[in-house]
């Protein structure tokens, strides 16, 4: 187990190095740079002023030097300055991380607490009216774009309650804050919960056809015990994998949801930073996301062993 963890750590380091090179190079391959964009708001491009600005921002240096500067700064905890706001990158990113983290966790919780139980119910009541209804719900979850769903939710709240659940910088209480996050989390988590539900259902159906389930039934185990003790535990393995992957994909849904609900999270900020070619923000933020995704997958791998005793990490 220990040697497995060490190997995984080394692999993670290599992955992150590869990611850093990829992020850095790809970003610079995108046409247009921050200087072009800065001049856009002035309505013209002056070549001499542009060259001066490129020099000021260090964009005139060889790309390898720029990369080396970034990585050494990153190692020392210096993320540099945003080209747009001219503020330290960390002060721009840090306050936004908890906002998106809360939203992502709530969306994930939403997808699990709805997706898994409904998937199980759908499986154990296969081909009944309940199953049909749940399958329609899950299909709509997969088909409705989250920006549309978000807008519809906003309109319904305004229409019915005269209240607009957009971001409030200073919520009066914990419960108001929770409510403020719950609505967008539900909008973005609806798709994930539909995915989890469908996967749980198919996984459960597959497991319930296994011999050991028949054996458990023949031994006289109750239906509840068979479904939830024997079947669900084994059916959860692919579900946990997909939840791990979804956690990474959630950022895509959050970009749209943060825009619609005007939530100043890190996802929307990333898109704005890409639009502005704000390299220091984008490369550090994408790197941070890469670290989170790599660690999440690592934890998911470790969870496999806990869920399925047959999986061993020894040589």
């Amino acid at each position: 187990m220990v040697s497995y963890i060490i190997r995984r750590f080394l692999l993670m380091a290599l992955t992150l190095f590869g990611m850093s090179v990829l992020i850095f190079v790809l970003l610079r391959l995108v046409p247009g740079n921050i200087v072009d964009l800065l001049f856009d708001s002035a309505g013209f491009v002056n070549p001499a002023d542009k060259a001066l600005l490129e020099e000021e921002l260090g964009l005139d240096r060889p790309i390898i030097v720029q990369y080396f500067d970034w990585i050494t700064g990153l190692m020392q905890g210096d993320l540099g300055y945003s080209y747009v706001s001219e503020q330290p990158v960390w002060t721009e990113i840090a306050p936004r991380i908890p906002i998106t983290a809360k939203l992502a966790v709530l969306a994930l919780v939403f997808s699990i607490i709805f997706g898994v139980p409904l998937g199980v119910i759908s499986a154990v009541r296969q081909n009944t009216m309940t199953d049909y209804i749940l399958r329609v719900v899950s299909l709509s979850g997969l088909s409705l774009p989250s920006f549309w769903l978000g807008l519809i939710i906003l309109m319904l709240f305004v229409q019915w309650f005269g209240y607009m659940p957009i971001y409030d910088r200073a919520p009066e209480s914990f419960w108001i804050e929770l409510g403020m996050y719950m609505i967008p989390a539900a909008a973005v988590g609806f798709r994930s919960s539909a995915l989890v539900m469908r996967l749980t259902r198919s996984s459960m159906l597959e497991v319930m056809r296994q011999d050991y389930i028949r054996t458990a039934r023949s031994k006289g185990a109750s239906e509840r015990s068979v479904n939830y003790h024997h079947a669900l535990r084994n059916a959860l393995l692919p579900v946990v994998t997909i939840i791990g992957i979804e956690a990474a994909f959630l950022i895509g849904g959050l970009i749209v949801t943060e825009t619609v609900f005007n939530i100043p999270g890190v996802a929307r900020f990333l898109v704005e930073a890409i639009r502005w070619r704000d390299y220091p923000i984008v490369q550090n933020l994408v790197m941070l996301i890469a670290v989170v995704v790599v660690f999440t997958n690592f934890i998911v791998d470790l969870l496999y062993a806990a869920l399925d005793p047959r999986i061993k990490y020894s040589e």
Partner: peptide, 18 residues
Amino acid sequence: FTIISSRSTRVLGFINGE
């Protein structure tokens, strides 16, 4: 000034008196 890039959201906000 609250910066809202989604036009639908900001106009809805105005209509709702925010």
